[in-house]
């Protein structure tokens, strides 16, 4: 049903060359606000409309595979094999990150330091109190209260949880062999809040609690965040520059299908829990015109969308990465085998 409607719309768009294009996409909720903002400005400038449905990353992958949308969007990149199997290509659009936040009386934002293994032990329920030796050892001079730690996590399946648990699994073998990394995991301890707001509300209401939220959410709500130790050994705070550093330093060239999690990057200023959100399109477009219009929109967004993204506290892709993506677009071909966008 949806397929026929979309088909009809695409058909209508193709029928008249001068008729404004109407594109549809679906997927991740995290970048939805910035995609909506871009779509609005794009329509004002070009007259082309774009309809993006924030149905979740899993839904986005399902929809693009079922051909019901012109592009899918996912916070969780697909591996190169999966992409090849489904005839898809992916590229990163904007960067986000995950920030540990807490409610600890007397502790300022960025004052408390946590490392990957400590974070893992807290979320496994091994470290139970804030004045535990493992926390005190990396926080000399910080008055840590003798308070039980309340762990807060997301209850809904989300890319935020995927990034966070992937980071824990990367840094702590116990986490990798225990709960593991996924959109939703079997949490050993803690309570689940629905969405970023749910987690933030529980953290605010519970003294001694720790949670994790998206960077934009932590920033806009001025939450007390923790400093993390990155691969270079430096303690970093979550800032737009730290996310950008992680993305810029990453080896996109050698990542087949742009499969890159940006976790624990080697750049000296990189924030360790960083991730990009991705767009999925078919490598063989059924219609050259539609394929062209989709890529034209994302090209326009790369060129003109940085300010809008930053205003919404997203971090734009670094320019060299954009250049790489533009080159990769040449692999997207129409029915005639020619690249749809140049």
């Amino acid at each position: 049903m949806l397929k026929t409607i979309v088909g009809a719309i695409c058909g209508a768009a193709m029928a008249g060359a001068s008729v404004a294009a109407s594109l549809s996409g679906a997927g991740a909720t995290f970048p939805a606000p910035v995609y909506a903002k871009w779509a609005e400005s794009y329509r004002a400038q070009t007259g082309n409309t774009l309809n993006y449905q924030a149905i979740g990353s899993g839904g986005g992958i399902k929809q693009i595979n079922a051909n019901t949308v012109d592009f899918g969007a996912s916070d969780k990149p697909l591996k190169a094999d999966d992409l090849a199997q489904s005839g898809l290509m992916q590229f990163p659009m904007v960067i986000g990150g995950v920030v540990p936040v807490m409610n600890l009386p007397g502790v300022r934002p960025g004052q408390l330091k946590v490392s990957g293994p400590v974070l893992s032990d807290i979320y496994r329920g091994v470290i139970k109190r804030w004045n535990a030796p493992a926390i005190a050892a990396i926080n000399p001079g910080v008055a840590l209260p003798n308070m039980p730690i309340t762990v807060v996590h997301r209850s809904d399946g989300s890319g935020t949880t995927f990034l966070f648990t992937s980071y824990l699994a990367l840094k702590a073998p116990h986490w990798a062999s225990g709960p593991g990394a996924s959109d939703s995991v079997n949490w050993p301890v803690g309570i689940g809040g629905k969405g970023n707001d749910g987690v933030a509300a529980f953290v605010k209401q519970t003294p001694g609690s720790i949670g994790y939220v998206e960077y934009a959410y932590a920033k806009q709500n001025r939450m007390t965040y923790a400093a993390l130790q990155n691969k270079a050994g430096r303690w970093v705070e979550p800032t737009a520059a730290a996310f950008s550093a992680a993305a810029a330093g990453a080896k996109w060239q050698s990542a087949p299908g742009f499969y890159l999690l940006l976790l624990d990057q080697a750049a000296p200023d990189a924030w360790p829990i960083t991730g990009a959100t991705f767009i999925l399109v078919h490598t063989k477009q059924a219609s050259s015109a539609t394929g062209h219009d989709v890529l034209a929109f994302f090209d326009w967004s790369y060129k003109n969308g940085n300010a809008a993204a930053e205003a919404l506290d997203y971090v734009p892709m670094p320019e060299p990465v954009k250049a790489l993506v533009r080159r990769a677009w040449l692999k997207i071909v129409g029915p005639d085998g020619k690249p749809v966008y140049r």
Partner: peptide
Amino acid sequence: DAGSTIASTIANEFNEAS
């Protein structure tokens, strides 16, 4: 204690489940 119900579990996880 924190708990869950059938309906809340479905609402939480169905979006991203496969």
